[in-house]
Simulated scan of single mutants.
Amino acid sequence: MDGFGLLCGIQPSKWLSNRNLGFTGEFDVSTGEIYENKSKAKYKGLFLSVVKGEKSIYCNLRGSLPMFFSDGHTNSYDYTREMFLATLLKLEAELKIKPEQNSVKTIEIKVDIICPLKVQEFISAVKSYKGTGFKNYLDNGKRIGVVFEFQQYHFKMYFKDLDSQLLRLEIAVKKMVWIKDTKIKNLSDLAPPLAWELLLKKLIQAWNEVVFIDENNFDYRLMKNYEIRKFFRLLDASYWLSLSPKQQSKAKEFIQKIKQKYCKAANTKEIITQLLFEKCQKLITVNSKKGEELTLFSDFKNIIKVNENSQLQKIENEVCFNHLNKGLNDEYNWSQEKEAVISIKRIRRCRRRECRKSLKNKRVTAIFCSDACRHKYYQQQKKKKRIN
């Protein structure tokens, strides 16, 4: 969790009388007239405001709770449920905000992972989400991700750190009706692990619905001519916007079909899905209850769509950083995650379908494992031409 918008049910005097907050008002520069309807303050990454309405005076809060937890230093770290529980005590001690006496108006669900792709490779692999196109996510005029905007929420995927390829997947909930099934009304409703599980499931479900095609995962040289033509047409993100819902469904079935035929290793989307699942386990777990709370995710894998023939299934136990029997490290090892991503990248193999031996020890430009394989391949091609 990150950005919050709260309507705090406290007396305005508890804020206005606090000298540490330093509330300021608004006034007319030309006349010097002071407006008493609104006072505001900035405190450790939070923006506080006291607004005088027609019926009452309202105390509002918006900003980053991870930033507040770090005393205003940063929010670029894994904000766990254990930290959130400590933040509730910190809010009550410093701002007199009780967890059950407030109303959540907006919330951000976020997860940071190490992406196996660089920023431009990742953006070019994103095609659409729920039949809609994306807008570029910019930082100082530089494109670092994409965002899908809807009335009730925004779904963002952008890089927090280009050097380490730190990718953030984030859902900014604009209207709480979108997550009404979670029954989250105030901060105290976010204390149980089940609330975090429901919110993180929505993030992974959103990622599963993204049409994501990393062309490097597919050996299109082995495809038939009509498959190659259709495959390259689907690599164009604008083409997906011209398709009807029924046509998009058929296009997704085609991608899944050629994935099983021509993608011999775990593809990039499956790798990211696995990393998301592992990070979600870490975020929800309180160290004192490791075993109990990891079992809450026992049915979490039901929403993860992974190809049955994928190599990811075979090496799942090797990549599972937060395994129930091993527990969790207090500090997340970014290098361990990066090594795991590299270890399950696509392996180069011999071009001849009957062989498919690894080309790991061959030169980069090699496409056959031996001269014999190369001769057999071209002999087969000549036979096909004579038959046709």
Rank of each mutant, 00 (worst) to 15 (best):
A125L: 04
I57T: 07
A206G: 05
G3C: 11
I342K: 14
W15M: 05
L117P: 03
L312I: 15
V147D: 08
F150I: 01
I171T: 03
F69S: 01
N140W: 11
S242F: 10
V51H: 07
D371Y: 11
A191K: 08
L194D: 00
R363F: 09
L88I: 09
E270I: 01
K52V: 13
L65M: 12
K110N: 10
Y129L: 00
S238H: 13
L88G: 05
T285I: 07
I184E: 01
F4D: 02
S17C: 14
P116L: 00
W178G: 00
I228Y: 12
R352M: 11
L203M: 12
K55H: 07
N302V: 08
I272F: 03
W240C: 01
L203E: 00
I10Y: 05
V119Y: 07
L296H: 12
K202S: 03
K110A: 10
L88P: 02
F297V: 12
N287Q: 14
T365A: 10
R346T: 05
L162F: 09
S30G: 07
S370V: 07
L46R: 02
Q256A: 14
D71P: 02
V286N: 08
K14G: 02
N136W: 09
S30C: 09
C280F: 00
T24W: 05
F150C: 01
V177R: 09
N216D: 15
F159V: 02
F232S: 13
W178N: 06
G291D: 13
K230D: 10
V364E: 11
K384F: 11
A251L: 11
I342P: 08
I344K: 02
L275Y: 00
L48W: 05
I271N: 04
E108C: 01
K384P: 00
R349K: 13
R374G: 06
V173W: 05
L294D: 01
Y158H: 04
K135T: 11
E293T: 14
I171C: 02
E149C: 14
Q380W: 03
E149W: 10
Y158T: 05
Q101I: 15
Y262E: 08
F212W: 07
Y153M: 04
A237N: 12
R356C: 01
E253S: 14
Y239N: 08
N302C: 11
L167R: 04
Y239L: 09
D139M: 09
E316D: 08
L200G: 00
T106I: 06
N217Q: 13
A41C: 06
S298N: 15
A191V: 10
K44F: 03
R62Q: 10
C8I: 08
S242P: 04
S335G: 07
E339V: 09
W334P: 04
M157Y: 02
T295R: 15
V341S: 07
